[in-house]
Design a binder for these strands. Structure first.
Length: 151
DNA sequence: GCCAACGTTGGC
DNA sequence: GCCAACGTTGGC
């Protein structure tokens, strides 16, 4: 069992949106970064823990808890010409982008980025590394447990 | 809206 | 395979 932090823009899909979806499931489409794709495709397993993170918004931070709900499968938006995530180089028989389904479990209090930075036990979180922009980052078991008590 | 940091692209 | 130019991310 592994743990992850997944960023989403609440304007696009907030924790409330994810909880309102059928069976609380959101297909995590639109990831167009190879490292993030590889995490989903190669390392995620059904049941892995997910910190649901709001980014690019008024108050960035952890907003909820979720879990990985499927194995990785090809992202259909890469083939949709009208989609902002359309990738002309992706081929049907050789998809470039993969994603998993995420099941939202609960909304938590918003734990702001500034608070995460302040918490000594979280000092080594990948999310907090200077210059980090990855939309999916691994979380250690220690960090997961600590954050579980915070929220 | 700014801008620093980073990833990707493509010419050579 | 290098690297400059460009586009994107995301906090502020």
């Amino acid at each position: 069992m592994r743990y992850w932090l997944m960023k989403t823009e609440p304007d696009e899909c907030s924790i409330d949106d994810a909880l309102a979806a059928p069976r609380h499931i959101t297909p995590w489409t639109g990831v167009r970064n190879y490292q993030a794709r590889n995490f989903m495709r190669d390392q995620m397993r059904v049941g892995d823990g997910v910190l649901f993170y709001h980014s690019s918004c008024e108050e960035p931070g952890i907003a909820g808890l979720a879990e990985v709900a499927s194995a990785a499968y090809p992202d259909p938006t890469q083939f949709e010409r009208s989609s902002p995530y359309y990738d002309p180089k992706a081929k049907k028989d050789d998809p470039r982008w993969f994603h998993v389904d995420v099941r939202a479990l609960k909304k938590t209090r918003l734990v702001p980025l500034a608070e995460l930075r302040r918490r000594k036990p979280l000092a080594k979180m990948v999310l907090l590394r200077p210059g980090n922009r990855l939309s999916i980052t691994p979380v250690t078991e220690g960090e997961w447990t600590y954050i579980g008590k915070l929220v």
